[in-house]
Amino acid sequence: MTVPSPPPAGSRGAIALLAESCTSCMLCARECPDWCIEIDSHTENEPAAGRRPRTRHVLDRFAIDYALCMYCGICIDVCPFDALSWSPELVDPAAGVAGLILERDQLGAFVTGS
C-alpha cells in the first residue's frame, strides 16, 4: 500500500530486505524484542583447488511477522551488512493474522532507493 502524500524523510513504513546482502548471521532474529523474525538457512561448501572447502551460509527463508513487529528498527540498526532498511510504504492489512507474515520476496519488494 503506497502512502498518498510523500511521507517525511526518514519515515518508518515497512522493513525491507535486500536478500543478496544477508549472510544469515541471525543477529536481527536474536535482537528483535518481539521475536518476529524467522530465518532458515543452510551451509554450502565451495570447493577450492588444493585447499579445504570454503563454507557459505545460504538464506532459505526470511520472514517478518508484522502482527508482532513494533517497528523499533533494532533489526535494521544491528544488521552488519545493511541488508535491512526502512521503506516508506505501509504493510497491507490482511484478513487472517497469517497474512501478516511476509516472506523474503515480499520484503524484497519494499526495497527502495539505490
Binding site: M1, P4, C69, M70, A95
Partner: peptide, 13 residues
C-alpha cells in the same frame, strides 16, 4: 475480520 499491522499504524492504514 481484518488485521492492520503497525505500531501504531498510520491513519491512512
Amino acid at each position: 475480520d481484518l488485521y492492520v499491522p503497525g505500531c501504531p499504524p498510520r491513519p491512512q492504514a
